[in-house]
Write a protein that binds this DNA or RNA. Sequence first.
DNA 1: AGAATTACTACACGGCGTTCACCATAAAGC
DNA 2: GCTTTATGGTGAACGCCGTGTAGTAATTCT
Lengths: 230, 230
Amino acid sequence: MEATMSRRERLRAQTSAEIKAIALKLMAEGGPDAISLRAIAREMGMTAGAIYSYFATRDDLVTTLIGDVYTSLVEAAEAARDAVPESDVGGRIMAWAQAVRDWSLANPEGFRLIYGDPVPGYRAPDDSPGIAAEVRACTGITGLVAAAWPVAGRASQGYDWADFDPGLVAHTREMFPDLPPAGLALTMRVWGRMHGLMALEIYGHLRGLVHDPATVFRDEMRDLIASLGL
Amino acid sequence: MEATMSRRERLRAQTSAEIKAIALKLMAEGGPDAISLRAIAREMGMTAGAIYSYFATRDDLVTTLIGDVYTSLVEAAEAARDAVPESDVGGRIMAWAQAVRDWSLANPEGFRLIYGDPVPGYRAPDDSPGIAAEVRACTGITGLVAAAWPVAGRASQGYDWADFDPGLVAHTREMFPDLPPAGLALTMRVWGRMHGLMALEIYGHLRGLVHDPATVFRDEMRDLIASLGL
DNA sequence: AGAATTACTACACGGCGTTCACCATAAAGC
DNA sequence: GCTTTATGGTGAACGCCGTGTAGTAATTCT
């Protein structure tokens, strides 16, 4: 598809990619706040104002970055999951969790970018790539829960489709028709359980308390898998 | 002790308190990034430079605020816990969790301040009030786990005191002499489990997905308490 | 009363996001 | 082939920001 782009379009895409690459580099070095248009432009030998031909505002640039970074996280998780046979549901859950943790420790600033508050007061539009990646992540966990549901779902009740977002419900029922509403609630609980220890660790609240957080996280995931009956 | 303060000290304490109060107000309105020395000074009819008589830098002010806010959170949690009789360990855990969640939803910016990244790249000194509050919070959860340990701790192994920070170990062994190393690991897992769903919710990742996150959180905490054997 | 400390102002510096008028050049139209 | 137009870029400006520094007025100490 690159061949179908005019010279102008190619240059434009290239410059845009360079802006994002430098922004990611700056973020990796100094956190999300280090993403400054002036610094990017300086590194590119440009003026800050020139970036406004590519991104309407700094927040737009960061929003785009969130989409890219989130997608990279989700793809790492999906790849790790798919390396485990479908029959081993517990193994797939563990693989997913470990992949997310490994990625997050390797890209802590990326984690902050996704799950933190890089743009204060900002609400991503519903069609942004960041939201798309989040849906993909959420779908991935839902799939794991759905696979575990025949065992995990015994006597789970107390939820109704009306308790959830209609779009989410439609999407879920189409992809996992056997999953009842309580399965969606369980999905969120699983998500939260994977997220909690990692968030504490990445933001430094476990710093120094325990020498090997990986062991604690692994135990927690084992307990999660066991609690699903696997 | 106020009587023993000189006029100067009284005025100083009062001004300092006003600075912090306005900073909290600004934060509540626009998030941690809205805390600007110039805005505070403007609201007080002062110059920005004047604040440097009270706080060496903006980060120092934010650090102090973290201490205040974290302390307020911990005190809310402790009060809720203490309203439940000691014999009802599960009830105390639930009370603690609900209190933390209620506080966090009422003060989302405070939550971001404590568990987010308000000062990029900043590492709080070990003797800051924020660290003290975090130790207090950690101790509170440890106490809950210690109370549940006779039931929850069956066959828990695989940890050693050497796996944890010496200071934490000394502090824990003194306060909860019956708790083995594996109890500390469980404490962190419980902490993470309480934190995960709340962090996702406060940072908007559950926004719109589920209409009543409180129910999901309550179910998760019930499952946690049940998994402890209570 | 005189000396020293303190709270504060005024101003300056550099960095930031953002806007705007202007300009060179590449693309498109005749 | 020449002209018109669109585009990516500059450079200066505005108003924020944190942070220093010199100076001033008032309070406190001796």
